[in-house]
Structure formats: structure tokens, C-alpha cells
């Protein structure tokens, strides 16, 4: 019984996170401004990190957790770089 609940809740979590990724992608395509798109990319990264962790629990493989750690770090660096670019690159000072 508890195994069924566990398995269903994992499926539920995966579905939730996939919908969340799709919504973040929607906001990224819709904009309206560059900072919205960068924030959407960051949200997409975080949600995909969480999705990989749920995959890791489901399969029990360490590789998924390593992948999600790497995604988290890459997402952070990418977002910081893009934010710096927004501050210095596009607006003429």
C-alpha cells in the first residue's frame, strides 16, 4: 500500500515539475522584457534540477544527483552572467 502511494507521489511530482518547466518556457517565450526571460531561464534550471532529483530517488542512481548539482551550478553562473550583461551590455551609459 505504502509502495503504491510512494510510486504515485513520485509520478505526481514528476508531472508537476514538467508542467512547471513548460510554464517557465512559456514565460521565456512570451517575455515581455529581457529580465523576464532571464528569470524564466533561472526558474527552468531550478525546476529541471528538482526533476532530476526525483528521477534520482526513483532509480536510486547517484548519477542523477551529480547531474542536478552540475545543472544548479551552470544555471547560477549563466544567470549571473546574463544579469551582468543586462546591467552593462545593452543599456548605453
Amino acid at each position: 500500500m505504502s509502495q503504491t502511494i510512494l510510486s504515485w507521489s513520485m509520478t505526481f511530482a514528476q508531472i508537476c515539475l514538467v508542467i512547471a518547466m513548460a510554464l517557465a518556457a512559456l514565460r521565456m517565450s512570451r517575455g515581455p522584457r529581457a529580465q523576464d526571460r532571464v528569470l524564466a531561464l533561472d526558474t527552468l534550471y531550478v525546476n529541471s534540477m528538482l526533476l532530476l532529483m526525483v528521477f534520482g530517488i526513483r532509480t536510486g542512481k547517484v548519477i542523477y544527483f551529480e547531474a542536478s548539482l552540475v545543472i544548479g551550478m551552470l544555471g547560477f553562473v549563466a544567470t549571473v552572467a546574463l544579469a551582468k550583461f543586462l546591467m552593462r551590455g545593452e543599456v548605453i551609459e
Binding site: 511530482a13 512547471a20 510554464l23 517557465a24 530517488i57
Partner: peptide
């Protein structure tokens, strides 16, 4: 485990819906 998974994933989804 099920409880925390459901809570975590729902909060992430609610946050993105609000976004």
C-alpha cells in the same frame, strides 16, 4: 517521502504558475 515530494513539487508548480 511521499509527503515531502508532493509538498516540494506542488510549491515549485504554484511558484511557476504565479510567475
Amino acid at each position: 517521502v511521499s509527503f515531502f515530494l508532493v509538498i516540494g513539487a506542488s510549491l515549485a508548480l504554484i511558484g511557476t504558475i504565479g510567475f
